[in-house]
């Protein structure tokens, strides 16, 4: 397996940011009330991860250790602001639904963590693979959590105003707790336990 593929796969499963590293749990809990919101936030996080990791890896040899964190923050904040502007202009529905969680990406430990732990120490191709793997791993985790919460909490799934499906029976009597914060903790906790138990996310 090539180095690129290895780094990519690692982010998807054995270093999955939500189910293994337990990074970015706050947005995972807050924005997964619907699949639409989860996709929007995941797209923004993946974009910021990819752009900032590539940039940091490119200039890593020129960044002195004393100012590395401020430089990383400037780079991350720039890409977060760009993502914020793009969302506001082109997908206002998701921009409004995500609210404060979109600009807050700048403070996600997952983004700064990958910049500090990986991109600042590795060459560009490996950093891109790592960012893509972590970004897509984050996306898959959010899709899984949001799907479960939306199906159980509303009785079906709808994206951009189109009803994908409605579960017979549950559509009329949804279990509202799943779209409330308590439901988020329940779903994430049960999924974490399930993955640990089955050994899917076991490191190495």
């Amino acid at each position: 397996m090539s180095g690129f593929t290895k780094e990519f796969i690692k982010g998807l499963i054995t270093s999955n940011p939500i189910f293994v590293l337990a990074l970015g749990l706050c947005p995972a809990l807050a924005t997964t009330t619907s699949l639409e919101n989860a996709l929007g936030l995941s797209a923004a996080v993946t974009f910021v991860l990819l752009a900032s990791s590539t940039m940091i890896s490119l200039i890593r040899k020129f960044i002195p250790g004393t100012v590395r964190i401020p430089v990383f923050i400037i780079i991350i904040a720039t890409f977060v602001t760009v993502a914020n502007m793009l969302f506001q202009a082109y997908i206002p529905t998701i921009y409004n639904a995500l609210g404060i969680y979109l600009p807050l990406i700048v403070a996600y430990c997952i983004v700064l963590g990958r910049a500090e732990a990986f991109a600042s120490k590795n060459k560009v191709s490996r950093s891109i693979a790592d960012a893509l793997g972590i970004g897509i791993g984050f996306t898959l985790a959010l899709i899984l959590i949001a799907s479960i919460r939306e199906i159980l909490g509303t009785g079906g799934i709808s994206i951009f105003g189109n009803d994908l499906f409605t579960l017979p029976g549950l559509g009329d009597n949804p279990i509202y707790i799943f779209i409330l914060p308590a439901g988020a903790f329940l779903v994430v906790g049960l999924l974490l336990a399930l993955f640990r138990w089955t050994g899917v996310t076991k490191n190495g």
Binding site: I63, P64, V67, I75, M85, L86
Partner: peptide
């Protein structure tokens, strides 16, 4: 300090361009 200043200048320029488009 020079590197930080340069990073800020590049960042602001990028944001001005993005802001103009959006």
């Amino acid at each position: 300090t020079a590197l930080l200043t340069l990073a800020i200048i590049i960042s602001v320029s990028l944001l001005v361009i993005s802001g103009g488009i959006t």
